[in-house]
Design a protein around this nucleic acid. Sequence first.
DNA 1: GTCTATAGCAGGATAGAC
DNA 2: GTCTATCCTGCTATAGAC
Lengths: 219, 219
Amino acid sequence: MAENRMRGPSKERLLNEAEILFAQKGFEGVSVREITRAAGCNLASVNYYFGNKENLYMEVFRYRWMPRAKRIHDNFRQSLQTQEPLSLSHIIQSLGMAFLRGPLCEEESRCHQQLMARELAQPTAALEMLAQEIMRPFFQELTDMLRPLVPEGLEESELMLGAMGIFAMILYFSFGRVAVTRLLGCEYDDALRNRLSEHIAGFAINGLKGLNKGKPDGA
Amino acid sequence: MAENRMRGPSKERLLNEAEILFAQKGFEGVSVREITRAAGCNLASVNYYFGNKENLYMEVFRYRWMPRAKRIHDNFRQSLQTQEPLSLSHIIQSLGMAFLRGPLCEEESRCHQQLMARELAQPTAALEMLAQEIMRPFFQELTDMLRPLVPEGLEESELMLGAMGIFAMILYFSFGRVAVTRLLGCEYDDALRNRLSEHIAGFAINGLKGLNKGKPDGA
DNA sequence: GTCTATAGCAGGATAGAC
DNA sequence: GTCTATCCTGCTATAGAC
């Protein structure tokens, strides 16, 4: 609260600080007073720029979360362009990298995943928007990529579940970082993020390969 | 709010209703007024029985969440006793069953998972307690079971990550049910829960098998 | 053990000066 | 656009009757 970074106009600062606080404490856990204080604005500014607190929450997703998601997706696509014959291994590893490390710093990445986790646990109008404009198109794109690389004849919904399972792990290892570090007994640093990303890739590649058979091979 | 189920003494009713509401809306999202109204008690009862709202939250975990977790774990152990030579397949399928279906009805299961998801996303003193008394012992038990069944020489922490990945999917498919049904385009009914449980098993068994090699086989 | 009444404070939103 | 002052509602917690 001492040194407010006064970069940019008030509206932008409000969006920046609101996103961080909403991610940390949830919509109900943050007060407008807290947000305006963090942004170095007066109490009335939220209502002036956004009408009310709820709409500020929506605009955080519209003007911060969604553009960032698009950057992550672009980052993912670009890291695939350099590799000509697409393999399952390339795709999954690029996925893990883009979402666990990607174009974001650790703090921004955690903020991003936490907002998503909150919306999943307690959907608001924001999830509706995200499902429509981000999640559905991206999962479509991803399953289109994966289809020629998984066992032939795999059901469409089974493929979708596979893709979702990968995101489950990414999200869990990100928002559940406190539990993860406590159970593993180590710090959540870059080395761990690399390991997690590799672990997810190794796990998911074999997981996807064994999907179509009702029972797994051997066991 | 019309028909309060007046079963049991006030303290029990408060714990019951508080758990449901905390799971749905989070600690900050629920007021003591709402809880006492749902439980059919007067406003002062929370302070009388629990001292304050925060302690009620802790007691929900102590007297509702933890005993339920122990029941789930017992259920898991029992379903393994009938199968003499333990296989990876048996273990993972029993896990999915115990946690996605188990001894709980759908509503209770969702409530249970949502509370866990909230604590992971925003840890309080409750997570400390759960890590100590439930999570660590259970993960220990689980990795002890898995160790003889995964590729030899697999690092201990890698095995732990594998076990956590399974829980990531279970949790995600449970608390993210709105997104899941929206993306799959189907209802979250018993048929889907069975499919999810089977999917996780198939995915995880192959995932675990391919773990120790830095790169997966083939790809 | 259960209730009502209320203290005391923090919340979102608004009015209106500058 | 930015600020202060303020309204009003709803919150937790407590005191004290029954």
